[in-house]
């Protein structure tokens, strides 16, 4: 239990002193994961809504695939993105490997199926409830989808937060495509992996504590914003 006490003490020390290296790492973690979630949201919500309301051949297969892809192993995504972005790979000329941009791409791929699949389910449920009503109002498929997404926008927040949880927690993909370069691509999870490698378990655990606090804070902010918005526009 000594390790946990040490960890709690050094976690507090890191936060209380506003450790500059830690702030950089936290900032980059936030920038990378929030960018990835933003990109995945822009693509994932329309995709999920289209799958919920559209009727076309192969739709069921796509839905099954999307649900399965929620469990994409980060290491595999990291490896695939690595091979694409490598100088010897098809997108090598852009020189994106080992940059935060590469990390955003990898995390977007990881997060997209989660947001799209959860959005599809939510819109599907709402569609089952309001289909007749919307049809009687003469809404087209596209118009109906828009109305529904807008109607359940607050529940979709949970889908986005689930995506954020995935992005901020994963280490396998960002480690491979980012390279865990000090001051450039080191984020919370790769820093934790590094300290574990160095055998500094209390510091690794302390960083883990800071990461969890950060995720809780993000969720709290999202919740408060949602409540305020709901009161105002609900």
């Amino acid at each position: 239990m000594g390790a946990f006490a040490d960890a709690a003490r050094s976690a507090w020390g890191l936060i209380a002193t506003g450790d500059a290296a830690l702030l950089d790492i936290v900032g980059l973690s936030l920038a990378v994961s929030l960018s990835a979630v933003a990109c995945a949201t822009v693509v994932g919500l329309p995709l999920g809504a289209a799958l919920a309301i559209g009727r076309f051949p192969g739709r069921r297969a796509i839905v099954i695939l999307l649900n399965a892809l929620m469990g994409l192993p980060p290491v595999v995504v990291g490896l695939a993105v690595y091979l694409m972005l490598s100088r010897a790979g098809p997108l090598g000329a852009f020189g994106l490997l080992f940059t935060p941009g590469a990390m955003v791409i990898a995390q977007t791929i990881l997060v997209l199926p989660i947001i799209a699949a959860l959005c599809r389910q939510a819109v599907d449920d709402a569609w089952a409830e309001y289909e007749e009503q919307l049809r009687s109002l003469g809404a087209s498929g596209f118009g109906a989808a828009l109305t529904l997404v807008w109607d359940i926008r607050f529940s979709l927040l949970t889908a986005i937060l689930a995506g954020l949880g995935r992005a901020s927690a994963e280490v396998g993909a960002v480690m491979i495509v980012g390279g865990n370069i000090d001051g450039v691509t080191r984020v919370m999870t790769t820093a934790i992996a590094l300290e574990t490698s160095k055998g500094d378990l209390p510091l690794a655990l302390a960083l883990g504590g800071v990461l969890i606090l950060l995720v809780i804070a993000l969720n709290a902010v999202a919740h408060v914003v949602k409540d305020a918005a709901q009161r105002r526009y609900g």
Partner: peptide, 29 residues
């Protein structure tokens, strides 16, 4: 706007001259 700011932050790192060194865990750790 927030997204654009995040992207700017992300690319700001790539400005100065840098080289990439592939090395071993023993030298880093």
């Amino acid at each position: 706007v927030a997204l654009a700011a995040a992207c700017a932050l992300v690319t700001a790192h790539a400005q100065s001259t840098y080289i990439t060194v592939a090395s071993t865990t023993s030298t880093e750790q």
